[in-house]
Simulated assay, not measured.
Amino acid sequence: MIGLSIFIWIIIIVLWFFGIICTGAYADRLGRSIGAFVFLAFLCSPFFVAFILFMLGETDEHRKARIIEEEKWRRSCSTETSQNNEEQKENIVDILS
């Protein structure tokens, strides 16, 4: 019986630290301070801190950087698509000629 309770506590501790790591990754993804939120998750509950992060959302600087990066990606995709369309048109003209 004691072995089972020790095993359960080990599982709880591992899940707690996994939650702390996930909270830190979520804070990083939102552009927030990783250390502060990991420390807060260690003291409180990782689920509570993740909810706080969800309510706070992204920082404005992080949001601007993400939008700029997505816009660059979108433009590169549209450039590749237009180049492929031009190549296909040339191939069709060659076939019809």
Score class of each variant (00 low, 15 high):
58 E>S: 09
18 F>V: 15
53 L>S: 11
19 G>Q: 13
19 G>P: 12
21 I>V: 15
74 R>I: 03
80 E>L: 03
87 E>F: 03
74 R>K: 08
54 F>L: 12
68 I>L: 05
95 I>R: 01
90 E>A: 13
23 T>C: 15
73 W>N: 02
40 L>G: 15
8 I>F: 08
63 R>V: 00
4 L>W: 04
76 S>K: 11
13 I>F: 05
88 Q>S: 04
47 F>I: 15
26 Y>F: 15
76 S>N: 12
23 T>N: 11
4 L>P: 00
71 E>K: 08
75 R>T: 00
6 I>T: 15
28 D>S: 13
75 R>M: 02
92 I>D: 03
11 I>H: 08
2 I>N: 03
1 M>G: 11
76 S>G: 01
63 R>I: 00
27 A>R: 04
55 M>V: 14
2 I>R: 09
33 S>H: 11
10 I>T: 12
88 Q>Y: 06
44 C>M: 13
65 A>Q: 11
49 V>L: 06
15 L>N: 15
25 A>H: 10
67 I>T: 00
15 L>C: 14
16 W>D: 09
32 R>D: 07
33 S>E: 10
13 I>H: 06
72 K>R: 11
87 E>H: 03
39 F>M: 05
16 W>R: 15
90 E>G: 00
16 W>T: 14
42 F>P: 06
21 I>S: 11
45 S>D: 09
58 E>K: 15
39 F>P: 06
72 K>P: 00
53 L>H: 07
31 G>Q: 03
73 W>G: 00
62 H>T: 03
84 N>V: 01
66 R>Y: 01
77 C>G: 00
8 I>A: 12
97 S>H: 04
18 F>W: 15
7 F>I: 14
85 N>P: 01
72 K>E: 02
36 A>G: 12
5 S>V: 11
12 I>V: 14
65 A>S: 05
